[in-house]
Amino acid sequence: MAGILVFIEQRNSDIRKASLQALSQARRLAGGEVAAVLVGSGVAGAAPGLGAYGAAKAYVADDPNLALYSAEGYAEAVAKAAAATSPEAILFAGTAMGRDLAPRVAAKLGVGALADVVSLERDGDRLVARRPVYSGKAFATVDAGGHTPQVVTLRPNVFAAEETGGVAEVVTLDGLALAIRAVVKELVDTGGGEIDVAEADIIVSGGRGLKGPENFALIRSLAEALGGAVGASRAAVDAGWIAHKHQVGQTGKVVSPSLYIAAGISGAIQHLAGMSSSKVIVAINKDPDAPIFKIADYGIVGDLFAVIPPMVEEVKKLAG
């Protein structure tokens, strides 16, 4: 049976956690061999280790012109690996890169793609995916209509990464033409050393209930105590209290951390669209009827200004 190919994303040779999650999911589903494709410059050293997550082979495109991401260049490399493996499916992690690359690769191969998938199972020779639609107000169960390869992007942090041991055989992809027209000239760090919400395992978000920009310090102190990232509602972003990169929701980032704490956020449907697949949801709101409580696993009805400072102390006690 044909195997599954997984695109592996790296930044400075650090393999993205979400790619390892995709690799593990491929191992759980594959009828045949699982192969990885790793693209970048000076990245070959990271390839054998992909075996630990289930890759039997790791195809590597290593070229200075691939140092920074390029949809065209990376798509060419992935298509070449697909030609070498004739996979039944190609999986991508649904990061900014994966969401950009997967559809370009799919179109290059003349097939469709299933985006933002939160469950992926096998039904005979088809993969069946479940994906949120209408901003999470409904879920669609879909397949790729019998076309192969089946191109799928997986929502990060939904599938478990499992280390099983092993070393991947490295295969070099060469002879790439790399006709790159859209060239990434630089990657500007806008994170300022902070964890991006899209990558964080714990997120503490603040909304209009914070009353002003200075009170994000309170959110930040809880996030720091928990080792998490700071998120925000659109109301807080639109008020200019915090940068848009922190926004969670339909017009912000879609996140699935293990723990999402929403403080002073009402829980509008567009906010829920970005965070309702979080594993544990906590709401802190003074309005017991706020919609956020309907999806919260835990909550405190109360004044966030009175609740968060003792929470920070309690969390610090656990750590200390």
């Binding site: 107000k137 879909v142 709401a283 017991p288 999806i295 696993d297 835990y298």
Partner: peptide
């Protein structure tokens, strides 16, 4: 010749009752 076949569409499962603490 579809590339995306919807097998079914469902509403999300109802959220289970959370533990809400009165903190006023």
């Amino acid at each position: 010749d579809p590339f995306y076949v919807v097998r079914s569409l469902e509403l999300p499962p109802p959220a289970s009752e959370g533990t809400i603490i009165k903190g006023e």
